[in-house]
Computed example of a mutant assay.
Amino acid sequence: MTGEFAAFVGLALVAVTGGVLMLNVTKVVHMVVSLIFTFVSIAGLYVLLSAEFIAAVQVLIYSGAVTIIMLFGIMLTKHQDEEEKPVGRWRKVLTGGSIAVFAFLVYKGIYQLDLGQTAQAPLHVKNTEQIGMALFTKHLIPFELTSVLLLAALIGAIVLAKKEEEDN
């Protein structure tokens, strides 16, 4: 067993465990912490794939910004204090069985995958430059449309926040 394989298995277990915990814990802050574990371990998997730029973006955007925005959104909204029913035994068994079936199907799918490549593509060669070239040549229009959509969402959030202030 190589060190790379051991790191992959460890990071994959942390990612899956974080996802399962996020679905099964009841407190919102615990859900966010398990989500952060999942995001950071996925960033570690990107590092193993020699995609350091994507790993850095994963940590900065998802582990940082998105998680904080989700936490603020949950904390600032009004909640009704309702008693939650305890999770039943059958739900836990069904969840575990579903995870096992999904893992088996992914395992079978990966080992039966035929990519049809005869020559290996060069890895570890200017990954960030290749992403930038693809983003600003082939995918320029979707990139710009995404930035306009995000700007419209930001303006909409400001307008909604101002209306709530005026109503009070």
Rank of each mutant, 00 (worst) to 15 (best):
T2Y: 03
F5N: 13
G10L: 15
L13I: 06
V14I: 10
V14M: 01
T17W: 02
M22P: 00
V29C: 04
V29H: 14
M31I: 10
V32S: 00
V33H: 04
S34G: 03
S34E: 01
L35D: 01
L35S: 02
F37M: 05
I42R: 03
V47M: 13
L48F: 02
L48P: 09
A51P: 00
I54P: 04
A56I: 08
Q58G: 05
S63K: 15
G64A: 10
V66K: 02
T67I: 12
I68A: 12
I69F: 08
G73I: 05
L76D: 08
T77N: 02
T77A: 07
K78T: 14
Q80P: 11
D81Q: 06
E82G: 12
P86H: 02
P86C: 04
G88T: 13
W90T: 04
W90Y: 10
W90F: 12
W90R: 09
R91Y: 10
K92D: 15
V93M: 03
V93W: 09
L94F: 14
L94G: 05
G96M: 11
G97W: 03
F102S: 12
A103G: 07
F104V: 11
V106I: 14
Y111F: 14
T118C: 03
A119Y: 15
H124G: 14
N127G: 12
N127L: 03
A134I: 11
F136K: 03
T137V: 01
L140F: 09
E144K: 05
V148S: 09
L149K: 01
L150I: 08
L150Q: 02
A157Y: 13
K162F: 08
E165Y: 02
E166G: 13
D167I: 11
